[in-house]
């Protein structure tokens, strides 16, 4: 598999009051195209920080993050926005849907940002909404959807541009068990169909059953890196 993201000796230090807090210590790893993997660990272990750095929402204190050989450190805010628009999809724990937009408009939004005409992509959006099982909710606003339905909209929104990397921060944290399984199944199916790499941050053990690779984080350090073997066992 080709390397999609290369993380090289990344350190992230936050200033908290008068003290420095090191969220990530010398992290290095590669993420392949089409991966379906997760960062697991307790709160404060550095999972979300790592996703934010990969997403260009934050910058490392030292070290480098390459996306398809582009060093994110070299990009300014405008370039980083373009990088996210062209290459990434985000799924958040709290869904982060645009509240005044309908399901259809939320999914359509990234395409409009890309300069697409609505008439040209309307069917594509509707197909994706159908794929996430929300055809009958297409005109509803997020306030009228359940948590599981909101997360499905967020998934459709993240995938609509067919990005090569989806970053999902605790995507099942706000969902009950049944909805969590449904969302994970959906993401696994879409990963297989669309070949987009999915990277989760999670402390939800249910996610473990679905991912092909699991990286354990503790206190900002990688403490294990397990891949699923031929027998379907993570080791």
């Amino acid at each position: 598999m080709d390397t999609l993201v290369k993380i090289e000796k990344v350190v992230k230090v936050y200033r908290v009051g008068d003290e420095d807090f090191t969220a990530l210590h010398d992290i290095s790893l590669n993420i392949e195209a089409g991966a379906f993997m997760s960062f697991v660990g307790p709160s404060g272990s550095g999972k979300t920080t790592l996703l934010n750095l990969m997403g260009g929402l934050d910058k490392p204190t030292s070290g480098n993050i390459f996306f398809e050989n582009i060093n994110l450190k070299d990009l300014n805010r405008t370039d980083l926005a373009e990088y996210r628009r062209k290459n990434l999809g985000f799924i958040f724990q709290t869904y982060n849907l645009l509240p005044v937009y309908s399901v259809y408009e939320n999914v359509l939004f990234p395409l409009l940002l890309d300069g697409e005409k609505e008439s040209a992509v309307r069917q594509k959006v509707l197909d994706l909404v159908e794929k996430v099982g929300l055809s009958d909710q297409v005109n509803k606003k997020p306030a009228h959807l359940s948590g599981g339905q909101c997360q499905r909209v967020a998934i459709a929104r993240a995938l609509v541009k067919q990005p090569s990397l989806i970053l999902a921060d605790e995507p099942t944290a706000n969902l009950d068990a049944e909805n969590s399984y449904q969302v994970l199944e959906l993401m696994r199916d879409l990963n297989r169909q669309l070949k987009a790499a999915f990277v989760f941050s999670t402390h939800d053990e249910k996610v473990t059953k679905y991912v092909n690779r699991e990286i354990g984080l503790e206190d900002g350090r990688i403490i294990w890196d397990k891949k699923r073997d031929g027998n379907g066992v993570l080791e």
Partner: peptide, 15 residues
């Protein structure tokens, strides 16, 4: 704020 953050994550420039 969350909406602004979301727009940034979706690739909209601050400008």
């Amino acid at each position: 704020q969350k909406e602004v953050g979301t727009l940034m994550a979706l690739g909209m420039t601050p400008g």
